[in-house]
């Protein structure tokens, strides 16, 4: 873990990718790869079937990639990237989840966020909450 250095504030920014953050890094990495690969295959092989759903898949994959990079990079910029992607992810899973339950015809093919991520054990729903909690807990200037 990061050592407290000068002054009152501990450089927690440097540590968002360590400790429990490293577990998050692994899980986000898994989702970045799986969502990315899924979107890639969907778009390459049957894009015309459900363009909206597949573009959403690709978007979700990008968000997971961004979150992974943010956690890995750390620092002020990494924190911002991780914060932004976790927030987008939370909004995305809630909006897409609700829409996919209400209007199933608009989402004929599953995306990571469909039905609140039930195809992935609801991990996509829980993950942004854990991510935001982790970033909040390690916010800079926390006593």
């Amino acid at each position: 873990m990061a050592e407290p250095t000068s002054g009152r504030t501990r450089p927690r920014d440097a540590a968002i990718g360590t400790g429990a953050g490293r577990v998050l890094l692994l899980v986000y990495g898994i989702f970045a790869v799986s969502a990315g690969a899924r979107a890639g295959v969907q778009i390459a092989t049957k894009f015309s079937e459900a363009p909206l759903a597949f573009l959403l898949s690709a978007f979700a994959a990008l968000v997971y990639v961004a979150a992974t990079i943010g956690l890995a990079v750390g620092g002020v910029r990494g924190r911002l990237i991780a914060l932004a992607s976790c927030s987008i992810e939370l909004v995305g899973v809630l909006v897409v989840g609700t829409l996919s339950v209400l209007d199933q015809e608009a989402f004929p093919d599953a995306t990571v966020w469909s039905r609140f991520g039930s195809g992935y054990g609801y991990v996509p729903l829980v993950l942004p909450l854990i991510g935001l909690w982790w970033l909040w807990r390690n916010r800079p200037g926390r006593p």
Binding site: M1, T18, G19, R22, V23, L25, L26
Partner: peptide, 13 residues
């Protein structure tokens, strides 16, 4: 990743 994290979190990884 677990080698990088010699804490309980490494075991969780």
């Amino acid at each position: 990743l677990a080698r990088l994290e010699p804490t309980r979190w490494g075991t969780l990884i």
